[in-house]
Design a protein around this nucleic acid. Structure first.
Length: 738
DNA sequence: GCCTCTGGATTTTTT
DNA sequence: ATCCAGAGGC
C-alpha cells in the first residue's frame, strides 16, 4: 500500500483515500487526474480489500478506458479484466444484451450511428408526409437526441400548450421509435436511455446491479448528460459510493447534450459529498498556465479552481500575426522546422490545434509542399467511409435481417437494378403486411406467401438478392468472421465493383483494412464473432487509433485534443469568427463554451505555446478580414512575445490586403487605404409577426425588431427554447411563409 | 434506373 | 471552394 500513496500530493492522496460516500473531484488540466483515478481503484482493491468485480469505472472514450486499464495493470495486476471498465455506451450495450429482454430489447439488436439515425428519421418523415425543407431532418434528429438525453418521451410533445413544431417533432419521434423497434435497432442515445428505463421498470434487475457495484466512478463528469447521471445515480443508490471526476472549465460538449448542472448540483444532490480540488499542475510552464488562467477567468459562475505549478516559467507565449492562412501555415511549418532542427523537439512532440476541420486544408498543403510528415486526426473517418459503411451494413444485416436501414443501404450495392420505385413499393408492401423488408424479399421465393406488387421486370433482382442474403445469413451462423466476410465480398463481387469506380484501389484498401480489424475476431465462435465485431465497430472512434510515439506533427481539432498533451502546441486561427466561432456569437452560453475551448487548447501545451492568427482568411470561398481573437487580449503582454509581421514584401501591394500594421504605415504616409471590411451583408427583410427558422432553435415568431447601424436586433419567440434576442447578421435565419 | 446538374449549406462529433 | 442531396433529364 506504500507504493499506492507515495508520490501523490496531499490533494491527490486525499482523493485516493476518500472511499466512502459521494465524492466530487474537481481536477484542473494536467493535475494528474488519471493517476488519481487509477490509484484510487488500486487503493480500493489492495488496501480496502474491495473485490474488483464490484467496481465500475466509466469513461467517455475507449482511449481513456484503455489507458486506465493499462495503468491500473501496473498498480494492481491481479485486478486485470475483472473490473467493469469502459465507456458509458459499451457498458450499457453489455447490460442490454444481457438483461434487455424484460424491456423488450432483443439480445441481437444493432446499433445505429448518426447517419443511420438520420436515414430512419427521413424515412419516418416521408411516411408522415412532412416537408424536409420546412423541417430539416437534421434539426428533428437533434431535437429527438436532445429529448432522449433528457429522458423526454414522445408523449411530452403532445401535451397541451406545445407548439406546432414540437408536435411535429413528437410525431416523428413516435414513428421513429416504432421503426427502431421493428428494425431491432437502438441509436446511441437509446443505449443509455433503455438501461435507465430497464432499471426503472424492473427494480429486480436494478437491485442486482446495485448490489454488485460497491463503487462507481465516473471520469470526465462535466461531459455527462442527464441520462448518464441518472444512470450512475441509480447504480450507486444502494451503497452511495459514487465518485465523479471532472473539470467544468473543460466542458466543451454541451451541443452533445452534456449538462453542467450535473457538476453544479452534485453537492446538493448528494448530501455529505466530499469535494476535492486538484489544482497543482504538472504539465505546463508557469507562463502557459498563467495564459490559461487569464483566458478562462472572465467566464461567470465558475467553480473556484485556480491552478498553480512548480514548473519553470519557460518561454513566453508566442503571439504571431500572419497575412493569410497560407502564410499562417507556412509560418507554422518553418517554425517547426526550426524547433526540430535547432532545439530538442521532434515532430511527434508537436500539435497544431484548430477550431474547424476546414482549417486543416491550408496546413496540410504546406506540410506536403515542405515534405514534412504530419498526421491528420479524422478527415473522413474510417468507419464513415462509404465503402466501409456499406460492408458493415451488409454484416449488420446478416446479424439482424430486420435492420431495414442497412437493407435499404445495400439493396442496390453493387448496382443490381433495384431503384427507388421498386424499393418504395416493397416498403409499402412490408408496412401493409407488418413484416420487415427482408421478410417481404423472402416471400418472393415462397410459393404460398403474399407477394409485393412489383412489375415482373423488377422481380428477378429482388428475388436473387433475397436468396443471396438468405444464404449469407446461414453462413453467418456457421463461418468464422473472416470466411464470412470473404464470402460476402465474393458473393457481391465487391472488388470488381469498387475497381470500376473512382479511387477504386484506395477504397479496396479500406476494405482490406476492415478485414484486418475483423481478423481479431476470428477466434470467437461463429455468430458471436460477428456481433462482437459489429459492436466494436459501432462504438469506436478515430481518436482510438491515434498512436503514440509517431514521428509526425499532429493536426487536430480543439475538441479532439481534449485530454491530450504536447510539448509544443500551435493554436491557429486565433481570430474573431473562428475562435470564438461566429456561430456562437448570438448565445452567451455558447460564447462561454468557446472560451473553454480556447482554455482546453492552451492547457494542452507543456513547454511552448504559439497563438497564431491570420489577418485575412478565406472561408467558404470568400476572403474576409478578421479581428484578432478576444482571447488574445486576455493574455498579459508580460508573458507574450509578439511577432508582428515584417514590413510589406513585394507581393502585398494592395492596400486593402495589408495587415493593420502595414495599413497604419500607409495611412501615415498619406496613402489611401480602402477599407478591407467586407460589404455590409444583405439583411433579411423581417418584421414582427414573421415566421422564421433558425438552424438550431427551429421555428419561431419574430416579436420585435430593432435596427442598429448596419444590423438589427431581433427578438424571436422560438417554439423550442422560448424567447431569444439575436443579431440579424449572425443568426442564420430563414424566413418562412406565414 | 442511372447520370448530371444545380442549389444550399458549410462548428465542434467522446459513442 | 466544395461537398452533398434532391430534382430533372436521358
Amino acid at each position: 500500500m506504500q507504493d499506492i500513496l507515495t508520490g501523490l500530493n496531499p490533494a491527490q492522496k486525499q482523493a485516493v483515500e476518500a472511499v466512502e460516500g459521494p465524492v466530487l473531484i474537481l481536477a484542473g488540466p494536467g493535475s494528474g487526474k488519471t493517476r488519481v483515478i487509477t490509484h484510487r481503484i488500486a487503493y480500493l482493491i489492495k488496501v480496502v480489500g474491495i473485490n474488483p468485480h464490484r467496481i465500475m469505472a466509466v469513461t467517455f472514450t475507449n482511449k481513456a478506458a484503455r489507458e486506465m486499464e493499462t495503468r491500473l495493470n501496473l498498480l494492481a495486476p491481479s485486478a486485470a479484466g475483472r473490473l467493469t471498465m469502459g465507456t458509458f455506451h459499451a457498458i450499457c450495450a453489455r447490460i442490454l444484451r444481457q438483461d434487455g429482454l424484460p424491456l423488450g430489447v432483443p439480445a441481437d439488436f444493432v446499433i445505429y450511428d448518426d447517419d443511420d439515425q438520420q436515414s430512419l428519421i427521413k424515412q419516418a418523415m416521408a411516411e408522415l408526409e412532412l416537408d424536409p425543407k420546412r423541417y430539416p431532418p437534421a434539426s428533428i434528429r437533434n431535437a429527438i437526441s436532445q429529448a432522449k438525453s433528457q429522458l423526454v418521451l414522445p408523449a411530452y410533445y403532445f401535451e397541451k400548450g406545445r407548439s406546432y413544431f414540437e408536435e411535429v417533432v413528437g410525431r416523428v419521434y413516435e414513428l421513429y421509435e416504432k421503426r427502431l423497434k421493428q428494425n431491432k435497432a437502438l441509436d446511441f442515445d437509446d443505449l443509455l436511455l433503455k438501461v435507465v428505463q430497464l432499471f426503472k421498470q424492473h427494480p429486480e434487475v436494478l437491485s442486482r446491479y446495485q448490489e454488485r457495484y460497491l463503487h462507481v466512478m465516473v471520469d470526465e463528469f462535466q461531459d455527462t448528460n442527464l441520462v448518464q447521471y441518472e444512470l450512475v445515480k441509480m447504480l450507486s443508490a444502494k451503497y452511495k459510493n459514487i465518485c465523479v471526476v471532472g473539470d467544468p472549465d473543460q466542458s466543451i460538449y454541451s451541443w452533445r447534450s452534456a449538462d453542467l448542472r450535473n457538476v453544479f448540483n452534485f453537492e446538493t444532490d448528494n448530501p455529505g459529498a466530499k469535494v476535492i480540488l486538484l489544482e497543482q499542475n504538472y504539465r505546463s510552464t508557469k507562463n502557459i498556465l498563467e495564459a490559461a488562467s487569464c483566458v478562462i477567468a472572465p467566464n461567470s459562475g465558475r467553480k473556484p479552481i485556480s491552478l498553480w505549478t512548480e514548473n519553470e516559467s519557460g518561454q513566453p507565449i508566442a503571439v504571431v500575426e500572419t497575412f493569410n492562412e497560407q502564410e499562417e501555415a507556412q509560418f507554422v511549418v518553418s517554425e517547426i522546422e526550426k524547433l526540430t532542427r535547432y532545439e530538442k523537439f521532434s515532430p511527434g512532440d508537436i500539435a497544431i490545434l484548430y477550431r474547424t476541420n476546414a482549417q486543416s486544408r491550408a496546413l496540410e498543403e504546406a506540410f506536403i509542399r515542405y515534405g514534412m510528415p504530419y498526421r491528420l486526426v479524422s478527415g473522413t473517418r474510417f468507419y464513415q467511409r462509404r465503402e466501409v459503411k456499406d460492408i458493415v451494413a451488409y454484416l449488420r444485416l446478416l446479424q439482424n435481417p430486420h435492420d431495414s436501414v442497412s437493407l435499404q443501404r445495400v439493396i442496390n450495392i453493387p448496382t443490381r437494378g433495384i431503384g427507388a420505385k421498386t424499393l418504395s413499393d416493397l416498403g409499402q408492401f412490408a408496412r401493409e403486411q407488418d413484416i420487415s423488408l427482408y421478410e417481404s424479399l423472402i416471400n418472393l421465393s415462397d410459393e404460398n406467401a403474399p407477394k409485393p406488387p412489383i412489375p415482373s421486370r423488377g422481380l428477378k433482382p429482388l428475388t436473387d438478392f433475397g436468396l443471396l442474403l438468405k444464404s449469407l445469413i446461414t453462413d453467418a451462423q456457421n463461418l468464422p468472421l473472416l470466411n464470412l466476410l470473404d464470402r460476402l465480398l465474393e458473393g457481391i463481387n465487391y472488388r470488381e465493383f469498387l475497381f470500376a469506380s473512382e479511387d477504386g484501389e484506395e477504397r479496396w484498401d479500406n476494405i482490406l483494412e476492415l478485414r484486418t480489424v475483423a481478423q481479431q475476431y476470428q477466434e470467437i465462435a461463429p455468430p458471436e464473432g460477428l456481433s462482437a465485431f459489429l459492436e466494436s465497430v459501432a462504438l469506436v472512434s478515430d481518436l482510438d487509433s491515434l498512436e503514440e510515439g509517431v514521428s509526425a506533427v499532429t493536426l487536430i481539432t480543439l475538441h479532439q485534443a481534449k485530454g491530450l498533451e504536447y510539448p509544443v502546441v500551435f493554436m491557429v486561427g486565433m481570430e474573431e469568427g473562428v475562435l470564438p466561432h461566429s456561430r456562437s456569437f448570438d448565445d452567451p452560453a455558447q460564447m462561454q463554451e468557446e472560451r473553454r475551448l480556447c482554455y482546453v487548447g492552451v492547457t494542452r501545451a507543456r513547454k511552448r505555446l504559439y497563438l497564431v492568427r491570420a489577418f485575412r482568411r478565406s472561408l467558404m470561398g470568400q476572403s474576409n478580414v478578421n479581428e484578432p481573437s478576444r482571447y488574445l487580449k486576455d493574455i498579459p503582454q508580460s508573458i507574450t512575445k509578439g511577432r508582428e509581421k515584417q514590413p510589406p514584401p513585394g507581393q502585398y501591394t494592395a492596400a486593402s490586403a495589408a495587415s493593420p500594421v502595414i495599413k497604419q504605415h500607409l495611412q501615415s504616409a498619406g496613402m489611401p487605404v480602402k477599407s478591407a471590411s467586407p460589404p455590409a451583408p444583405k439583411l433579411l427583410e423581417l418584421e414582427a409577426g414573421d415566421k422564421v427558422l433558425h438552424p438550431q432553435f427551429g421555428e419561431g415568431i419574430v416579436t420585435s425588431i430593432n435596427r442598429v447601424k448596419n444590423d438589427a436586433e431581433v427578438m424571436i419567440s422560438f417554439h423550442s427554447v422560448g424567447m431569444k434576442r439575436l443579431m440579424l447578421s449572425f443568426a442564420r435565419l430563414t424566413k418562412l411563409e406565414n
